[in-house]
């Protein structure tokens, strides 16, 4: 995989599996081309799939307006020995620094950003011209064991 891949999806939770499956396919293609024999990069693939899924669901959830025309833009690009995904929407701005929920209060939501942060090596949030962009990067190799 050498070029970036872009897709636009309606801001509707029914499309989450398309985002999720695409993220997985992209991660499989990328890791497969970078010497990933069977199973070796399973964790990379799982993490990438899950993080993109979470980012997409977040975007859908935060765009709680009746405006059906809203879209979510997802871009995948290989970068620095890893894979970057950015998820952009036109929702109101949000604070990406919200602290993780206290697990002992049995929270039923709020895990999304925590998970993205744990799964990816780097995340960035930007707000520009009415767009939120969450950019996430995961290295193919585990930085701890090189």
């Amino acid at each position: 995989m050498s070029a970036s891949i872009t897709m636009n999806l309606p801001s509707d939770i029914r499309y989450v599996r398309i985002a999720s499956n695409t993220a997985r396919s992209v991660a499989e293609l990328f890791s497969g081309e970078n010497g990933g024999e069977e199973g070796k990069y399973e964790e990379f693939r799982n993490a990438f799939e899950l993080a993109v899924t979470e980012a997409f669901s977040n975007s859908v959830r935060h765009g709680n307006s009746p405006d059906k025309g809203r879209q979510i833009f997802i871009t995948f690009s290989p970068e620095n020995e890893g894979l970057t995904a950015s998820v952009a929407d036109t929702n109101p701005a949000f604070n990406p620094e919200i602290p993780p929920p206290d697990i002992f209060s049995y929270p039923e939501s709020g895990y999304g950003l925590l998970m993205i942060r744990q799964l990816m090596d780097e995340i960035r949030y930007s707000r520009k011209d009415g767009n939120n962009t969450l950019t996430m990067h995961k290295k193919l190799k585990n930085p701890h064991n090189q």
């Binding site: 999720s20 799939e49 899950l50 899924t53 979470e54 669901s57 049995y106 929270p107 039923e108 939501s109 709020g110 895990y111 999304g112 998970m115």
Partner: peptide
Amino acid sequence: DFIDSTGLGSLVGIAR
């Protein structure tokens, strides 16, 4: 074979 934060939230909700 796949669970995300919403799925996890539903399990937590049931447990609570």
